[in-house]
């Protein structure tokens, strides 16, 4: 069934006989999340405009215009919104995922500030491995062999700390 879904998105499936697919997407659950993922992957590979350079600006304006975005769970329950347009909900999910990630980072920073406010002595560079700077450098360096290969390692290290 997922193969059929993929084919439907690629325009390689007869829409007239796809009613069972549409129904299963609308009923939510695994097929719906599948539908969202396939579209997100497609957007990323095509360089879709929703993922362009001013993406973050649009996230921020969407945040202002749509306070309910802050509670994606609640929005999920909003059946009327969902039935309105699958396309709209697709955009919405790309944005909601990013907003959730931003909130998560924000919380991490808050926690760090609370715990480290006492000791203000500088950290000697030799004692730490500043992976975030190395990753950011390698991500932007014009000749990059290291970035996508090494970052795997960086993530494992930081998760293990």
């Amino acid at each position: 069934m997922k193969d059929q879904l993929s084919a439907l998105i690629d325009g390689e499936f007869d829409v007239a006989s796809a009613e069972h697919l549409i129904t299963s997407i609308q009923s939510g659950g695994e097929m719906e999340s599948c539908w969202q993922h396939y579209h997100l992957i497609g957007d990323a590979m095509r360089g879709d405009r929703y993922l362009s350079s001013d993406f973050s600006a649009r996230v921020m304006s969407a945040l202002e215009a749509e306070p309910t975005v802050l509670a994606p769970k609640a929005a999920l329950d909003n059946q009327i919104e969902r039935k309105k347009s699958l396309f709209q909900s697709n955009q919405f999910w790309s944005i909601a995922a990013s907003v959730a990630a931003v909130m998560f980072v924000g919380m991490m920073v808050l926690q760090q500030q609370l715990t480290s406010s006492e000791d203000m002595a500088p950290v000697e560079m030799a004692q730490i491995v500043p992976l975030e700077y190395i990753a950011a450098h390698q991500a932007a360096a014009p000749s990059g062999a290291a970035y996508y290969i090494q970052n795997v390692n960086a993530n494992i290290n930081s998760a293990g700390q």
Binding site: D119, M120, A121, V123, A126, P130
Partner: peptide
């Protein structure tokens, strides 16, 4: 936050 100095 703690600042960083030195090299590695």
């Amino acid at each position: 936050t703690r600042t960083k100095t030195g090299h590695k």
